[in-house]
Amino acid sequence: MVAFPSPQQLRYLLALAELRHFGRAATACSVTQSTLSAGILALERQLDVQLLDREVGKRVVFTPLGEEILRRGRVALEALEAICQVAEASRDPMTGPMRLGIIPTIGPFILSRLVPLVSDLFPRVRLFISEDMTERLQERLMTGRLDVLLLGMPCDCDGLETTPLWRDPFVLIVPPGHPLEALPVVPLDRLAGERMVLLEDGHCLRDQTVDVCRQGNNWADSEPEAMHTASSLHTLVRMVGQGLGIGLVPQLAVDHGLLDGAGVMARPLTGGPVWRTIGLGWRLRSPRAEDFRTLANGLRRLGPEGAVIAGNALETRVGS
C-alpha cells in the first residue's frame, strides 16, 4: 500500500519554499527546526527522492524534482483544506476564523473602522489580520496561510479572484511655495519634468503611481533617474515636506490624517484615471468564495459616498 505524504509534511515543504530558511519555516509552522528538518527528510525517504540540493551550502535550493513535487504538493494541500472548508461553509456560512492580509498603504488608514464593522456585521467571524507588501501576501495566500486579501488594484493578481470595492483617488502633494501649489486642480501633464518621491520597490502603490504619471506622458516607458524613494507613506510625505520632490498619495490616507502636521500642500489631479481601486482577492476556486463575496459587500460600507463600486457595476476579475 502506498504511503502518501501527510498534510503536515506538505506544510513543512511549502513553508520552506516560501521562506527559504529552516528556522523561519519552523517558526511559521509552530514547530522546532529539528522537527521540520526531520519531517522533510522523512518525506524524502518515504518518496525515495531528493527534494533539496544539499550541495549548495546553507542556501535552501530545491532540486528540479523537488520543485515539481512542491507544485503538486501545493495543489494537494489546497484540495485537502478545501474539503474541510466546504463542510464548514455548508454548515454555517460566515463563521470561524478568517485570515485577512492587508497592504501597508491601506491598513493603517482603515483598520480602526474595518475591525468593528466586521465584528458588527459578522459576529461569528474571528478575524486575524496580517500586514505586508502585496507580493508576500499573495505568496502566503497561495500557500494557505491567509484566506483573503485587501488590495490596491491594478496589481498582478494571477491565481486570484478579485472584486472591486471602491475607487481611491490619488492626491498630489507639494512642498510649500511650489509653483503647482497655485493651481486648484493639477493636470497630469503639468507633472512633466518634476522630481518625484516614490515608495520603494515592492509597494504596489509605487507601480500605480508610475502608471498614473505615464498617462500624462511624463516618463514615457521609463522612470526618472533623479528621484528619491521612501519606505512608507509617512516617510514619503516628510520627504516632500523637506523639498526633495513632489509625490502622489491616496485620498484614503489623506482623509485619515496622513498629512497632519507635515507642512505639505495637497491638490487634486485631472487628465486621466487618477485613482487606484481598493479590492478584495482570494484563491481561485476557493470553497469560501461566497463568504468572501459577502465580506466584500460589507466592506463596501467603508468606501466614501460616490466612490463605491456596486457588486454588479464592475465584473469580478479572475486571474489567469
Rank of each mutant, 00 (worst) to 15 (best):
P187C: 04
V31F: 06
G271S: 11
G263R: 07
T27S: 15
R195H: 14
M1G: 02
A87C: 09
A3S: 05
V186A: 04
P93T: 06
E139S: 09
D92W: 02
Y12D: 15
V115F: 05
D147M: 00
S231H: 13
T35M: 05
N218F: 15
M1S: 09
G57N: 05
P268W: 14
I110E: 05
D168W: 00
D189P: 09
V308R: 09
E139Y: 08
R74T: 07
G23T: 12
T134C: 08
G272D: 13
V197D: 11
L269R: 04
L244F: 15
R91D: 12
R267S: 10
N312H: 10
P123W: 14
A296V: 04
C29M: 15
L172D: 13
P187V: 03
E88K: 03
V75L: 07
A15K: 03
F4R: 03
S34R: 02
V118W: 07
M227R: 14
E290D: 10
T209F: 13
D158I: 02
P108E: 03
V318K: 10
R113L: 06
L36K: 01
G257F: 15
L244Y: 13
A253F: 15
S37H: 14
P287N: 05
L77F: 14
A79E: 06
R285N: 11
A192H: 08
T105E: 07
L47K: 02
L127T: 01
N297G: 14
P304T: 08
G306W: 08
T143S: 05
R285I: 04
P169F: 03
E88Y: 01
A3Y: 08
E55I: 14
G159I: 02
A76E: 08
A192I: 09
M142V: 06
T95A: 06
T143A: 00
L121K: 04
C84G: 12
R238E: 13
T277H: 03
F128R: 03
R99H: 00
V60I: 15
V75Y: 12
A192M: 02
V56L: 10
P268H: 12
A230E: 11
D221R: 09
R24F: 09
D92N: 04
T229F: 15
I102L: 02
I173H: 09
E135G: 08
